[in-house]
């Protein structure tokens, strides 16, 4: 199946320019690593839905007063007939992409988006037919996750499909695909009083040569909105459910491979994968990387403590 066929009525008509009709005149400034990100062209209900979804990270602004360095994304309206509609029960929603050196096109259920690098500045637009504010917010967040992944990559950071738990003042990242146990482990840690930055997507950057976890508003079920400051990363773990709890160091190659598999969007882009591998090598060089086998009911700290003692 070629790009767009799954979701679009007319894949060949995918927008070639960042143009179209806005939904309204509201704008939001999303303050995240790699940003700030300015979203323009929403109506009041849509902006309110995103304010709820990204609470603590976003505020309404007059576009004319937004920071000059903000990365602007237009939110645009298209007719429902542009998309294929089908029963979503049992269907795993995906975001398909095509990549060029200066542009990335994305398409999903009721959403399409385009990122463009013009004179080294990133701009974007997202088109959706979703008038319902919550559906609109979901569509825009799907796009925004990709946008942030690309901006982080440009700034030497990396977005990881990982849960991040803060324990004794340090962040532990638990990577793995859907079903690996990120939310289960996050919930167990939260029950014991640990803060969960997000149970789904987290950013890792470098401060003074050391990795830090940067909180993001993108989560599955859990996140701690009150924790905004970067947190030093103590370890990155690839999760594997098993009958016993055990943490074992990963060899550098295996560690980078495990992390690359959990670096969404950019790991599919042949124009940017070299940079991703370089960033992951840097991360693995300065941060313990482990395979964490865990039972669904346990906490990770005893196994991680034993691995640290044995290192």
């Amino acid at each position: 199946m070629s790009f767009g066929e799954r979701y679009l009525a007319h894949p060949a008509l995918f927008p070639a320019r960042l143009a179209g009709d806005a939904w309204g005149e509201e704008s939001l400034l999303l303050e995240l690593p790699g940003g700030p990100y300015l979203f323009t062209g929403m109506n009041d209900g849509q902006a309110a839905a995103l304010e709820r979804r990204w609470a603590g990270f976003v505020r309404r602004v007059d576009p004319a007063q937004a920071p000059a360095a903000a990365f602007e994304s237009r939110t645009l309206r298209v007719g429902a007939e542009e998309f294929r509609h089908f029963d979503l029960r049992g269907f795993e929603l995906t975001l398909e992409a095509t990549h060029a050196a200066d542009a990335v096109c994305l398409v999903g259920y009721e959403v399409m988006a385009r990122l463009e690098w013009r004179r080294d500045a990133l701009r974007g637009a997202v088109w959706t037919s979703a008038a319902d504010p919550e559906t609109f917010a979901g569509a825009v967040e799907n796009y925004c996750r990709a946008l942030v992944a690309y901006r982080l990559a440009e700034t030497g950071a990396v977005l990881l499909h990982a849960a991040a738990v803060v324990h004794d003042g340090a962040a532990y990242l638990f990577c793995g695909p859907s079903g690996a146990g990120k939310s289960t482990l996050s919930r167990r840690c939260a029950e014991e009083g640990d803060a969960v930055l997000s149970d789904d997507l987290n950013a890792v950057a470098f401060a003074d040569g050391r990795p830090v976890a940067l909180p993001l508003p993108f989560c599955g079920d859990l996140r701690s909105p009150e924790r905004r400051a970067p947190v030093p990363v103590a370890a990155v773990c690839r999760l594997r459910q098993a009958p016993v709890d055990l943490a074992e160091p990963l060899a550098p190659g295996a560690a980078i491979a495990a992390l690359a598999a959990c670096a969404p969007y950019v790991n599919q882009d042949p124009h940017r994968a070299d940079g991703l591998l370089a960033q992951l090598e840097r991360l693995v060089e300065c941060c313990p990387t482990l395979m964490l086998s865990f039972t669904r009911t346990s906490l990770p700290w005893p196994a991680l403590g034993a691995a640290k003692a044995g290192a």
Binding site: G253, I256, A261, P270, A273, L277
Partner: peptide, 25 residues
């Protein structure tokens, strides 16, 4: 193949095949 990128991490090599994406060592 044009969608393949790799990096040597001695003594291994990490490879991404974007079509998956699939990662190999």
């Amino acid at each position: 193949r044009p969608d393949v990128r790799y990096r040597h991490i001695p003594p291994e090599t990490v490879l991404i095949r974007q079509a998956g994406p699939e990662v190999m060592v």
